[in-house]
Write a protein that binds this DNA or RNA. Sequence first.
DNA 1: AAAACAATGTTGACAGTGTCAAGTTACATG
DNA 2: CATGTAACTTGACACTGTCAACATTGTTTT
Lengths: 204, 204
Amino acid sequence: MKTSTQKTGYHHGDLRKSLVETAQAMLKEDGIECLSLRKLAVRVGVSRTAPYHHFKDKNALLCAIAQNGFEQWTSMTKETFSQQHKTLPEQYRDFVRGYIGFATTNPELYDLMFGRTIWKQNAATESLKEVAYPSFQYQVQLTRRWQQEGVMPKNLDSLRLAQVTWGTLHGIARLLIDGIYADNSHIEEMCDVTVAMFTRSLVS
Amino acid sequence: MKTSTQKTGYHHGDLRKSLVETAQAMLKEDGIECLSLRKLAVRVGVSRTAPYHHFKDKNALLCAIAQNGFEQWTSMTKETFSQQHKTLPEQYRDFVRGYIGFATTNPELYDLMFGRTIWKQNAATESLKEVAYPSFQYQVQLTRRWQQEGVMPKNLDSLRLAQVTWGTLHGIARLLIDGIYADNSHIEEMCDVTVAMFTRSLVS
DNA sequence: AAAACAATGTTGACAGTGTCAAGTTACATG
DNA sequence: CATGTAACTTGACACTGTCAACATTGTTTT
């Protein structure tokens, strides 16, 4: 009869889930540099080293959060492409806006998902890779389709084109969330220019 | 008769310069997460808190390194545009390659110059801003010129276009140096596709 | 030249971090 | 009920940035 959220005082119930959720909340509130395992433990109401029974180290916890993020991102993106009544260029525009919107709405999460903290030293968990790699591949598939449908130039290598177009979205996202584009009031226009440059079909 | 590199035993000579140079070397060798003030002090041969007489805090030291980086970057870029015998599209291609080359050759420095560590909490030193802002502006000027010369589309707002094109370079650079594009063997091709997308004049 | 001062360097201390080792409690299974 | 294991706790360690108090050196003023 024990539910996963039940607490006994000593045993927490479902500490792993609590840790990820609370950590994600703390991440959103105060940024990654303020997220420490010890503060997290206090907030969850558990001792400093309890998290180590559920995560090998801090990196593994961060990977779990990022994994969460990829699942959110994937479901959001798939929804964009379920709008069958829209033209492909319109869908691409929505995709671009959605991508940048996701990044600016969840800057710290985006940083974790696509930032050096996890990827640079090849620190990604296996289970994170299983979620992240397909979503990288997904962008190449999309690009190939847009090329076939004539939305993007056909003469360019799909992989390279995908790298460049994704690079653009990533770059704009990063410049926004890292505080280099201090002014966040022209995001839509930037998206539109991006679409115009890559598709030449919505804006003149 | 005292030169700036002279040492007396107690007084160092030119500690500030030594700190920046050694820190930049350590940054390049082991990455930013391994760069601590204490290790730096040991390597320079000085006590832990000596750096505080030359830099308000660690952030100020990082800003000084970044400032160095901007000066390097600016002089490198200006050189690209001094190649008068080349056509404008060729110059743009060289600029793109130079930009990505700078980032991949000095990944940690690039991260410091254009990353969240400094910019996100508005932690940039005044003297860093004096160097960095003009080099941001410089990219807008370049874009405007390329539009006037017909290399880039004239109908788009220069600022937005500059944001997108720079965003592309920044995004590709970040994906490379953050370890998300694990394969570094097709950088030139990515640059060429970028040029093709934005200028449509070198590659078909 | 002596004295006062400012710049530069040092040691000690503190709070904070991630993480390991050893012990404790609660639950599950024979 | 006994035993084992998973979950959790306290103690400890090395490391970090930074402050306060003190020491040394170089410079300026009397």
